[in-house]
């Protein structure tokens, strides 16, 4: 019977939904025993809740681990895998996950695959390749497998009625030569594009940085009306123009997203941008140029001036909510 260890990534004091999706893959596709691991400063406070998702939960809590230092995190994970005879290590394919996954794989002599969006079986994964222009179906041939699953690609696991056993482990606090000098935190409540259900993205057609405020208003009203996670995205043109931070960029040199709905507003649809969002379930384009390539991939399009269309959409959604 397979044994899987899932890294439960903590962000803003909570286990990320993306990590629960990885637990879902372990439960529904790989099967067998599913273990979880929490590492970091203060993670003990989450253990009772986290234990409800797994058969056994390992906890490594230390004030020294106030940042996801890849080396001690990976060494702790590798030690648990070896001690418990674990074949599969699952992690969400976030920045932290993609950093730790191959390091763990190297330590336990496993194959590491990241950005996994599908699984045909416990041995065959599916992931986008060549800038999302193809999906590769890959059979993993090594005994040990490290799989980083793309956020939003799988359904999250549900908490069980009973909690798994909690095992406290001695933290590894050797930070691997890494020192945190400064962290400028993101605005609170801002959702990352890769984790959003709906992405509202703006491009060159916005004409200036101030128009992102309009998109933020649309995000607020969409959040209220749908109850879903809505995030702000941008095309490379808008980022290069200095209108918005690179962390919002969707595309070949930015982030790859596949939300339920992708709003492309004032985005022409350069091939590099399409590479980052074409797997979205629904694409809605708003652009004044009817020839814009974005309309070729969009499910729904409105040809018009975003300065009229977006405020009207905000207004109509507000009315809809009232009714």
């Amino acid at each position: 019977m397979a044994k899987t260890l899932v890294f439960l990534e903590v962000l803003d004091g909570e286990v990320r939904t993306a990590s629960l999706e990885a637990v879902g893959v372990a439960r529904n596709i790989i099967g067998g025993e599913v273990y979880g691991i929490l590492i970091g400063k203060g993670v003990s406070s989450l253990k009772d809740e986290a234990a409800r998702y797994v058969d056994k939960l390992f906890v490594s809590d230390s004030d020294e681990l106030d940042y996801p230092y890849p080396v001690p995190f990976a060494k702790t994970i590798a030690e648990v895998m070896e001690k418990e005879g674990i074949d599969y290590f699952l992690i969400s394919s976030t920045v932290v996950g993609r950093e730790i996954a191959p390091l763990v794989a190297g330590l336990v002599d496993a194959i590491s695959v990241e950005e996994v969006t599908g699984m045909e079986s416990a041995e065959v994964i599916v992931k986008p390749v060549v800038s999302n222009k193809a999906f590769a179906h890959i059979k993993l041939l090594k005994d040990k497998k490290v799989i980083a699953v793309k956020p939003k690609a799988f359904a999250p696991a549900q908490a069980g009625d009973s909690a798994g056993e909690v095992v406290e482990i001695t933290p590894n606090t050797d930070r691997g030569g890494l020192t945190v000098k400064h962290i400028k935190e993101k605005e609170k409540g801002e959702i990352d594009v890769t984790e959003a259900d709906i992405v509202v993205s703006g491009g060159r057609g916005l004409g200036g940085p101030e128009k992102f405020q309009l998109l933020r208003e649309l995000i607020d009203v969409l959040t209220q009306v749908t109850g879903l996670k809505v995030a702000l995205g941008a095309s490379r043109a808008a980022v290069d123009a200095g209108w918005i931070d690179h962390s919002h960029q969707v595309g070949q040199t930015g982030k790859t997203v596949s939300p339920q709905i992708y709003f492309a507003i004032g985005i022409s649809g350069a091939i590099q941008h399409l590479a980052g969002m074409r797997t979205s379930k629904y694409i809605i384009a708003i652009n004044k140029d009817p020839e814009a390539p974005i309309f070729k991939v969009a499910d729904y399009g409105i040809v018009g001036d975003l300065n009229q269309v977006v405020p009207e959409l905000i207004e109509k959604l507000k009315q809809y909510k009232k009714n």
Binding site: P70, A74, R98, P102, L103, V104, V130
Partner: peptide, 15 residues
Amino acid sequence: IDDNSYAIGGYLAAF
């Protein structure tokens, strides 16, 4: 970008 692999850095750090 061909195989969409993020693994080289981590593998080398481990090896």
